Simulated scan of single mutants.
Amino acid sequence: MELMLEDILDFCTGKQEDGTPMAGSSISVFGLTRAKQPITKQNVTFNQPLEIHTVGGCITVSIDFKKCPEFYRATKICMDWLDKSEDTLIYTIIPMLLEGKITVILRNLVYCDFYEKKNGMLRLILAFDNNETLLFGSDNIDYDSIKAMVDNEFQKKQQELDEELEKYIKEKEELEKESYEMDILGEMDILEDEYSSEDALLHRPGVRFEDDEEGNDND
């Protein structure tokens, strides 16, 4: 059974029920020694919730950090690599729920930026060439079991969306009802104000009052 990248990314995005991130991450830069032996030149690991989106041939990863060494190190590694990309930069994502049985490898970094959010968190945004994305799985992986987990996770998220939509519709209807009732009460207050004075009462349609002099003349 073949698993699609989108299926695995569902296990990498956001948080688990206990609040811990769905996946662990690392950014590494690999090069060669003078003897042409592979060597890890730079590396940083972190455990932050991820937002992952794929659009065409691009895959973006947004990571929210507190002001911590991991943020500054990850940002510097990526910025430096974009300035001088002689070595190989790899972003490794390991979905926690899959217990390391599948690893997502992102390659060919094409964009890096960051900004501070209103809540004080620092968001690092990375974009990679999605055509270079790789999936690695262990030999004893149970694809049927993982596919079942993917389907279960999808149904769970769909149910959450349905519940949120139902809640939104209910709140919207209640607000509209309250607004309608307030409008009716406002119109009633206006009518009371219009007919509360003697002058307004005298000018009500279909009602005619004779003054005292006219009444005396008729006598």
Rank of each mutant, 00 (worst) to 15 (best):
E51H: 12
K101V: 07
P21K: 01
C12P: 01
G14P: 04
K41G: 07
M121V: 10
I52F: 03
M1C: 11
Y168A: 10
A200W: 04
E160S: 00
E2G: 06
A23V: 05
T33F: 03
V61E: 01
K84V: 01
E86Y: 10
E181A: 09
S197T: 13
D80E: 14
F114L: 02
Q155A: 05
T40V: 13
E99A: 13
D144E: 14
D142E: 02
E164L: 11
K66D: 15
N218F: 15
I52V: 06
V61L: 08
T54S: 06
L185A: 12
G14T: 01
A23S: 01
N130G: 02
D193C: 08
T88R: 07
Y143E: 08
L201G: 00
D129Y: 02
N152W: 15
Q42R: 12
E163C: 08
D18H: 01
L97I: 04
G100A: 01
T13M: 08
H203T: 06
N119G: 04
A127R: 07
M121D: 15
D83G: 05
L9Y: 00
D80L: 03
A127G: 08
Q155C: 12
C78W: 04
V61M: 07
G19N: 01
E214Q: 12
E187L: 12
K76G: 08
L32M: 14
G57W: 06
S197Q: 09
K76W: 00
I8Q: 06
D7F: 05
K84E: 13
W81K: 04
D129E: 04
Y91M: 14
R208D: 13
T33C: 01
L175T: 00
D10T: 07
E2F: 04
I146F: 01
T45G: 14
K84I: 05
L97Y: 06
F128T: 04
A127W: 10
Q158S: 11
I93N: 00
I27L: 10
T88P: 04
D144W: 13
I169Y: 08
Y168Q: 13
K177E: 14
T33V: 07
F114Q: 09
M182C: 10
I169A: 00
L126A: 00
N108L: 11
R73S: 13
N216H: 15
I125Q: 10
F71P: 05
K157Y: 02
L126Q: 03
D219H: 11
M4C: 11
L161H: 03
Q16W: 08
